[in-house]
Design a protein around this nucleic acid. Structure first.
Length: 648
RNA sequence: GCCGGUGUAGCUCAGUUGGCCAGAGCAGCUGAUUUGUAAUCAGCUGGUCGGGGGUUCGAAUCCCUCCACCGGCUCCA
């Protein structure tokens, strides 16, 4: 007998060789049907794998992340089996699970092409295999046997994977006639898979390396119930309605023109107003935090970027230099604001008493992004950073860094971005060739960030190899409507550019010292931030940001004059309002303005005119009754004040 | 840049064995209606079927090529 301990601390004796599934059966019939994986002493196992010694266990169903992992991983194997059926000789790469589903990278036989028109028959085949309810059988194999198996099969990708594994830890899983190299865990049998949908197809380089062969990646998702698949697809459809590219068009915020050039956004009046308000909001916050405005041109002499190191790093992958017609001097479109700001610092001698200096600029920069990378407003070739560079003494670094974090967190709070994640981006641990500057400077900079994050008590993940070439950074990431992560705010500590630009200040010891630089952009870029804001709000912007706050709807053109008067009164109280004078019925005007997501609709007819009142409707919330104009002003002022209140 | 897909009116979409002047709804314009809380009615305008080339008596439809967009990969100062 062995002793099994449950998560709540309770324990129970079972015969040796009992499985997670058996244990579930002993608890309840329902649980046994749902269990798909089990954690045994911290390791995730197959639910049907035998446990042979005392252990702490935890049972997982599809609702758990661990359960989904086993479920989707097993589905990937089944998909691979179906793909082998239709494409004999197909070579298999990796088939991992992802946040929503799984994929398998495959190398199709010479001449074969997989397109989405084949999805249906592959799905059907998978379900057919699933109905056979074949068990997933785990076997431990030696490295030499494993290599032999896949060398015989001619699958060089698996061979390559096995070569990197340590002997003694290699396992195969087999279901039906299909065997795959896999750590597991897996479902007890294929019958658990009741619904599957192939989602898309993409090229993916083997091992993520551009120099390797590009394999075909098949994305799919599966569920234990058909209904769950239907719900998932519906959710996906709903999310697509929030796509900023769709809403940007519908709400007249921005557009693109192939004639202007790909990746070069054109802000329409409503979008420009929204963006301007965001900028003014941040300007005000920054003023309170002691920032000083600076303005720099859109181009800069090539030498500037040679000095900063940007040219060596990105010169080949940038828009190429333009040159003056007479002298042949080379200029680059500005890809970064920092070199310009360094030269502003250098414009005059600085004393330790001047620091910190905080130069802020909404600086528009131009970067050559690969054509396949462009994506709405989130990835463009010309964009405006809410940039600033803080030049400070080393002893001021920590405090300055924390203050920047305060700004970022404040902005996220005001705009209700509460589902963000933070990432500390450090140097690649093994390859330092991508970076400029001394090890000593890097270590100082990396430690500064780690300490600041610790001081703020923020839960950040550490990613190696994600740093900028001149310094490490702290990034704030937010997800878009369909779950893609985008970096918004960024804070970077930099000891290197001050050296390259020979920045100095005179200390109280009468000696010259080198300042430290902080690069920071709380929004990241106006383009990307607005994109994410659109998706988060589904176009229902906060009252203080929205281009039009109130629309006045006269019941018929007899009341146009009164409507105009009401609108003027609102404007006099700094409320953005306009009159919908179209010759339409009131129902039509309400519908159209609701769809345009105007926060307040004011209806005026004979009754209102006689009593000098207004009828108010709130977007998405229906009739609010009649009131005086100043009552609405009060409601709106209050709503705005509440949104902007500074809570430390 | 790479893999796969898509491209018909401002928007959403019909239009496949290649065949008369390419269609609808919404938007727009004109007129009628003077309206009480999510779509009033009628008429009209609007398209080099993404561009170019080819096959054919004939191409939105088939082929080639370029462009843009969509989903990924790689990249992201």
């Amino acid at each position: 007998m062995i002793k099994i301990t449950f998560p709540d601390g309770a324990n129970k004796s079972y015969e040796s060789g009992v499985s997670g599934l058996d244990i579930a059966k002993s608890i309840s019939h329902q649980l046994a049907k749902e269990v798909v994986a089990v954690k045994v002493d911290g390791e995730i196992w197959d639910a049907h794998r035998m446990i042979e010694k005392d252990a702490r266990i935890q049972l997982f169903t599809f609702e758990d992340r661990e359960g989904k992992g086993a479920f989707w991983h097993s589905s990937a194997h089944l998909m691979a089996e179906a793909l082998e059926f239709f494409y004999p000789g197909v070579k298999l790469g990796i088939g991992p699970t992802i946040e929503n589903g799984f994929y398998y990278d495959i190398d199709l036989p010479e001449g074969a092409v997989l397109t989405d028109s084949e999805f249906k028959k592959i799905e059907d085949k998978i379900l057919e295999l699933a109905r056979q309810d074949a068990p997933y059988i785990r076997t431990e194999v030696s490295k030499s046997n494993a290599l032999e198996t896949f060398t015989t099969k001619g699958d060089q990708y698996k061979v390559e994977l096995i070569q990197d594994l340590t002997d003694g830890t290699i396992t195969f899983y087999r279901q039906g006639n299909f065997t795959d190299l896999c750590r597991g865990p897996h479902l007890p049998s294929t019958g658990y898979i009741k619904a599957i949908k192939l989602l898309s197809i993409a090229g993916a380089y083997w091992r993520g390396n551009e120099k390797n062969k590009q394999l075909t990646r098949v994305y799919a998702i599966s569920f234990p119930k058909q209904k769950m698949l239907v719900e998932y697809l519906e959710r996906l459809e709903e999310a697509k309605k929030r796509d900023h590219r769709k809403l940007g068009k519908e709400l007249d915020l921005f557009t693109f023109s192939a004639k202007v050039g790909m990746g070069l956004p054109l802000w329409m009046p409503r979008g420009a107003q929204l963006r301007e308000r965001l900028e003014n909001f941040l300007k005000k916050v920054q003023k309170d935090f002691g920032y000083l405005p600076v303005i720099t041109p859109h181009i800069g002499n090539k030498e500037l970027y040679v000095t900063s190191g940007h040219f060596a790093k990105y010169g080949k992958d940038s828009f190429q230099p333009i040159s003056t017609p007479q002298e042949g001097e080379e200029y680059l479109l500005k890809p970064m604001n920092c070199p310009h700001h360094c030269e502003i610092y250098n414009a005059r001698p600085r004393s330790y008493k001047d620091l910190p200096l905080r130069f802020a600029e909404f600086g528009t920069v131009y970067r050559y992004e690969q054509s396949g990378e462009l994506h709405g407003l989130t990835r463009v070739r010309g964009f405006t950073q809410d940039d600033a560079h803080i030049f400070c003494r080393p002893d001021q670094l920590k405090e300055e860094f924390l203050k920047v974090m305060d700004i970022v967190l404040y902005i996220f709070r005001v705009l209700k971005f509460d589902d963000f994640s933070t990432q500390i981006s450090l140097r690649d641990q093994s390859d330092h060739s991508k970076y400029i500057g001394s090890d000593e400077n890097w270590i100082k900079a990396e430690n500064a960030i780690i300490e600041a994050v610790k001081a703020k008590g923020i839960d950040a993940v550490v990613e190696y190899g994600e740093a900028a070439f001149y310094g490490p950074k702290l990034d704030f990431m937010v997800k878009d409507a369909i779950g893609r992560k985008w970096q918004l705010g960024t804070i970077q500590v930099d000891y290197n550019l001050p050296e390259r630009f020979n920045l100095e200040y005179k200390g109280n010891d009468n000696l010259m010292h080198r300042p430290v630089m902080i690069h920071r952009a709380p929004f990241g870029s106006m383009e990307r931030f607005v994109a994410v804001l659109i998706e988060h709000t589904a176009g229902k912007f906060p009252l203080w940001l929205t281009p039009e706050q109130v629309v006045v709807l006269p019941l018929s053109d007899k009341f146009n004059e009164y409507a105009k008067k009401v609108s003027e009164l609102l404007e006099n109280s700094d409320i953005r309002s306009f009159v919908d004078e179209r010759n339409e019925k009131i129902g039509k005007k309400i519908r159209d303005n609701e769809l345009r997501k105007i926060p307040y609709l004011v209806i005026v007819g004979e009754k209102e005119q006689d009593e000098q009142l207004i009828s108010v409707r709130k977007q998405g919330d229906g009739d609010k009754g009649t009131m005086k104009v100043e009552d609405l002003v009060k409601i709106i002022d209050q709503e705005i004040q509440q949104a902007l209140v500074f809570k430390q």
